[in-house]
Design a protein around this nucleic acid. Structure first.
Lengths: 201, 201
DNA sequence: ATTTTTATGGTACGGTCGTATCACAATCGC
DNA sequence: GCGATTGTGATACGACCGTACCATAAAAAT
């Protein structure tokens, strides 16, 4: 057999090829041959590492969310060595908006997968539904932290605000994606609500 | 020639067949043969009334938005003979949430089209981008009305709140669609923000 | 050195899809 | 009544797609 290759890395390379071609032509239009060509391998190789297209798509989603999670974490770390809750929340929400190529690709493909999951039960069963819940919990926790530090205004329910902010972020993100709204106006709206939640200071 | 049939109505029937099958199996999976079978006509007929699949899809989107616009208008009318701005806004926002089969289908297919429009320029050129702008203008106008009637709290910018409410409604709608959130919790969140915008009384 | 296992390439098969073609029925204008 | 026009059916074509099959090169195991 040939040069004992690292399967995990090979699968990652192919998955990233999938992401690239899907970002370019749409998830519905991607075929195994396209992925193979984009990755610079033969069709047979794609079949070898992912037996079926469905498995390739599932792994692609998994890889996409992992990579994006790392990116968000990096953004949060970059928000300062000991950032306040508001800075962390801002970093979180802004990272989720499709403002550059990478976040745009993520938002686009994630939404594509979400739409597919409505009619595809294999996708619906995927833990890709768990991620938004995790984001909601994280954001709720940060808001509670801010409340305990007396940084917030009165009459604020942490979970309600977390849900609101995430829903708004998702809605604004889609607006940006389809070209209806600019990233700047979207961040302005989010900051407006953060100013409402956090005490001025 | 044969029994002089009403073309407009025939096209509507076929478009509704398209909507039904797309709602069942996903927009990406719908073929001309499926539409023909669902409408109870031959494949040739679908080709006759819409020369190409692209034209069928475009007309389907147009029909979908028209039907939904009528539905929202009906809901608003049903909100009372002389409803206050808040009642109208509530009716608007609630009608946009996927709470029953019809609104669910609309939200699902509209999002599907939106995702497609990112990579399909024929769809991107469609006025289906104009509709959200119209909704934003309408909602902004209603909020201004409320402000003039002194129904709102202080520090409210009508357009900003309109954008926020619509983004939230869209984001919450998607959450409902993928089964992550219940319609009840979504309406609760929206009402929370309406309570914030409108003075209590 | 030979066998066995892993990796890779090439290619063919069956199905489906959008579209085009051919045929014909039914009705209106004349 | 007749030719022109419009509606409808059946079917064929070419392209693609996912998958399966066959071959083989190369390294590890013996």
């Amino acid at each position: 057999m040939p040069k004992r290759v690292d399967h995990a890395q090979r699968r990652t390379e192919i998955a990233e090829a999938l992401v690239r071609v899907a970002a370019r032509r749409g998830l519905h239009a991607v075929g195994m041959r396209d992925v193979a060509a984009e990755a610079g391998v033969s069709l047979r190789l794609v079949q070898y590492y992912f037996e079926t297209k469905e498995k390739l798509l599932l792994f692609g989603l998994q890889h996409l969310t992992e990579r994006f999670g790392e990116r968000v974490a990096a953004r949060v770390r970059a928000a300062g060595s000991s950032p306040g809750p508001r800075a962390v929340i801002e970093a979180l929400l802004m990272a989720a908006l499709p403002t550059d190529d990478e976040s745009r690709t993520f938002h686009f493909l994630y939404t594509s997968y979400a739409v597919l999951s409505v009619t595809d039960e294999a996708l619906a069963a995927q833990p890709f539904i768990a991620n938004p819940d995790a984001a909601e919990d994280t954001l709720t926790g940060l808001l509670r932290q801010a409340q305990e530090a007396d940084l917030t205004g009165p009459g604020i329910d942490a979970r309600d605000e977390a849900v609101s902010l995430l829903a708004m972020s998702a809605g604004l993100g889609t607006s940006i994606l389809v070209g209806q709204r600019s990233p700047e106006s979207a961040t302005a709206i989010l900051n407006l609500h953060l100013n409402r939640i956090f005490r001025v200071g």
